[in-house]
Design a protein around this nucleic acid. Sequence first.
DNA 1: GTGGTCTAGACCACC
DNA 2: GTGGTCTAGACCACG
Lengths: 135, 135, 135, 135
Amino acid sequence: MLISIDPSNGTPIYEQIVRQVKYNVANGSLVGGQQVPSVRDLAKMLAINPNTIQRAYQLLQSDGVLETVRGRGQHVAAGAKRSCVSQRARVIHDELAMVVEEGLQAGLEPAELRESFEAAIRRFNRRKPPGDSSA
Amino acid sequence: MLISIDPSNGTPIYEQIVRQVKYNVANGSLVGGQQVPSVRDLAKMLAINPNTIQRAYQLLQSDGVLETVRGRGQHVAAGAKRSCVSQRARVIHDELAMVVEEGLQAGLEPAELRESFEAAIRRFNRRKPPGDSSA
Amino acid sequence: MLISIDPSNGTPIYEQIVRQVKYNVANGSLVGGQQVPSVRDLAKMLAINPNTIQRAYQLLQSDGVLETVRGRGQHVAAGAKRSCVSQRARVIHDELAMVVEEGLQAGLEPAELRESFEAAIRRFNRRKPPGDSSA
Amino acid sequence: MLISIDPSNGTPIYEQIVRQVKYNVANGSLVGGQQVPSVRDLAKMLAINPNTIQRAYQLLQSDGVLETVRGRGQHVAAGAKRSCVSQRARVIHDELAMVVEEGLQAGLEPAELRESFEAAIRRFNRRKPPGDSSA
DNA sequence: GTGGTCTAGACCACC
DNA sequence: GTGGTCTAGACCACG
């Protein structure tokens, strides 16, 4: 599991953590039942206040991603992966729809947006060619 | 010119104003040289704090959209329209590229994203059929 | 609105606050749109740390009971009353079902439980006779 | 004697043990004078920390349910059954009274509560028909 | 003035 | 050792 924090970023630290944990769960870096670092450990690792970690973990709990097992720390919930993946997909589709609408409302031509869209896909494929499953 | 504010919305009011002024400039509702309401007037119209308007106007000035003419209030800058349009287009293209990359990185298929993309365009066209330029 | 805190009570302070606010909303002491005390004010009134109030208010927000209006504090959400009432009713019915099941499983006779149940109702009516709507 | 622990449950493990021992005593699965597993044995059986068992046994001792016979381990006290049964009954009656009061105070109608009460009894009878005393 | 975030350090219950 | 709660005090963005 890899978590990196940018404290000078606008988004709150606890939210950065929440996102990255969810992301790790979604892509399989964290699997169901696996233990995540304790509040204090992660706080030390990231050099931030334990309270901030605590907050992030609590949010993850109420989102059903983490479960606490009495006195033995936090574990990834069983069905977490599925829900994280679907949640992420939904968010992205919503964002895509929103930006497209914005563009059209701003007077951009569909063809223009489509070109931009396809270019983004081509750019991605060039960086990570099809067939590569190193992720 | 039409500006509507939603104070219970997450985005700061001053930013809502900035965006809508730029939008009005971009689509021609506000043309170069035209005067915009004074800070106090706009504050009254929108029933919000004058400080907030002030802040928005300052940002618009530093973006080159507004200019103050000594003692005669704020006016839309000459080249404002062109810069607003191009800026808006650039922002949207960037956002589009970003969300596409996010989606691919999250493991969504290009075809899936493309479908979502086209659906958004169809949805927009249905609401505002082609040929309509009432906006 | 009346909120009283018992810090020596086992249940966390922030939860006591959440419950009492919901309770006040459910019974009409707090109506939709009404403003609740600011974080700092309530903290002073109850002589507890603002952070604790903050936490309670945040939970109430995510439960849809409170809404923050930019820079003008927290307000009771429009549909809050209905949801609070129904939520409270559901919780109580669940608790009732649970304690009855516990009792039966412990070998108590239905008649015995029924007597206890009716006694509780009689006791309540004696304290607050029917027709009294002073609450 | 049957004890099952759910470590991911909110209630402390030692309390789960206390309750289940009392329950077993109340329904006759554990009779006066009978020996209970040693701290170490029970800890192994339940795969939990011996300290936790220790704590549970201490509580049971101070409640008069268990007695230590020097060098021969923990035994169920002579009058334990009677006290467990009556204690359990009292607790349940109190809980019932409390939840009824809560409900009435929340504005629920007595008839409504009564219906919920009877439904719980019917539900229980259906699962464990009258005449069955296999528990 | 408002809420939102973060830090530092403390205490507690549980295992 | 674990998480959960609370306090005290600071800083920031917004209006």
